[in-house]
Amino acid sequence: MTAPPGISDSDPRYDSRYQSAAGAGKLGMAIFLVVVGALFIVGLIGYVVVRLRAPEWPPPGTPPFFYGLWISTGILVTSSVFLHMAYVAVRSDNQPGLRRGMTVAALLGVAFLLCQAWNWSHMVGESVTPSGNLYGFTFFMLTGLHALHVLGGVIQLSIAAARARRGKYSSTFYPGVLYSAMYWHFLAVIWIVVFSILALGG
């Protein structure tokens, strides 16, 4: 952020006004992840409560656990690995590595969402719907909530990837890469927890 019109950027009274304090962004992102984590923890507690109260789980007529979810898990984890490679690359100023890592990670993010959409249509085809029973509802709520967060992450990741392709980041300045990576790895971990609970619970 530059100083307001009419005031020189070098005016000592304004210089540090809108420059973030050291580490503020990273801490802010960490706290944001705590918020998102709290959201999922509550969702999972809700799932456990519903499951414990149910006379039968999964309810009769529920199709077997769908293999498509394994595929999305694989896609998301691979995406995380590529993003980490981009992070390592930017810290050593390896621009081609950064570009490749960011681009592939973002594309895999889109692939993950497509795969989830395929999973949902498969579930609906097997007549598991959000309003059918609580099994269907919890499935769609947990995966839907996660997909919403991934959607936000993909948008942010795409912007960062575009910037990386234009050479905006260097080994001394890479906030977009750092925040994308923090958020993205976190979503991967959340997904693995959600996935395991759904797999074990189903």
Partner: peptide
């Protein structure tokens, strides 16, 4: 930061209950 997400989920569940009857 810690408690408000719980309200969020609760209110969403209420909306779901009213609209699609979960």
């Amino acid at each position: 930061v810690l408690a408000t997400p719980v309200l969020g989920i609760t209110l969403l569940l209420l909306v779901m209950e009213r609209t699609i009857g979960i």
